[in-house]
Amino acid sequence: MTNPQPAIVLVRPQMGENIGAAARAMLNFGLSRMRIVDPRDGWPNPRANALASGAGRVLDAATVHGDLAGAIADCTFTFATTARTRDMTNPVYTPEAAMAEAAAMIAAGGKVAVLFGAERAGLENDDIAQANALISVPVNPEFASLNLAQCVLLTAYEWRRQVDRPAPQTTHWAGHAPATGAEIDALARHYEDRLDDANFFFPEHKAASMKLTLRNLWSRLPLTDADVRMLHGVLRQLLRRHDR
């Protein structure tokens, strides 16, 4: 748990279940530094462990503080999450932008905290006043309230995206190799030849265009070598039944 990361600070959380769910959300995305400020039902809380569902190590390492100032005393920058506008002047970030900024500051040696308020009303203005910037989630304005664990999950997810960016789209090949250009070409020729025999490409003046469309179809499909073998077999079996 020594990897550089922001501290997740739960300010006056009310229910142990939500603390446990927040711990689970954190560990889902590689966060483990939880700080708890003045929990209503005391600490440790068995209900938190029940909801952590395998993330008990986060709760075991959590530190408890009597006030917010003590919880963020070592931090060089603090974000506060809020779902409503405040009569205060603060820079406001989306979760994505905030975690990008946090990653840059931590990489430069800074210590960052993210504050989350109590379930009923969120952070108070006195809490906000101790933060350097706000994080505001673009939620439905007619129903802006987020569960504590949901809010932690959103932030943790954006953190993970910044430090371990996955490819935006990948293909799972299920143990098979992607088909090669030569295999795709052989499949295309197999179908073209058999469809030619069946007079599929008609009328004649449209034949070239139809073949081009069919070739393009094969090229667009993310076929494996097993797919190609199966498609060859499908056509052969259909022709055998036709010949019989």
Rank of each mutant, 00 (worst) to 15 (best):
P141Q: 09
V163K: 06
T2D: 12
P44W: 05
V137C: 03
M88A: 07
T78Q: 09
C75W: 01
W43P: 03
A198E: 10
W43N: 06
N125V: 14
A102K: 00
D74F: 04
L51G: 01
I184W: 09
L195Y: 10
C75Y: 01
A118H: 05
R194P: 01
R35H: 10
V163M: 08
H172V: 14
G66V: 12
L217E: 10
S219A: 14
A71G: 02
A22R: 02
D127N: 14
V9F: 05
P138H: 06
D196Y: 02
R12H: 12
R84C: 05
A198Y: 07
A7M: 14
R35M: 05
M105W: 08
I128L: 11
A144I: 08
V152W: 03
A98T: 03
I184Q: 12
R120I: 08
F202T: 15
G30F: 03
D196P: 00
I72S: 03
C75P: 00
P46L: 11
L31F: 07
A83K: 13
L195E: 04
S136W: 03
E17Y: 10
S145E: 10
L123A: 04
A226L: 08
A174S: 08
L31R: 10
E183W: 10
A149I: 12
A198R: 13
L27M: 12
S32V: 00
V37K: 01
Q169H: 07
W173E: 07
R236M: 13
L148K: 05
D67P: 11
F77V: 10
R40F: 11
R229K: 15
V112M: 07
N3M: 00
N147Y: 11
Q237G: 12
N28E: 01
Y191D: 01
P4G: 10
A104L: 01
F200R: 01
N49C: 13
T63A: 14
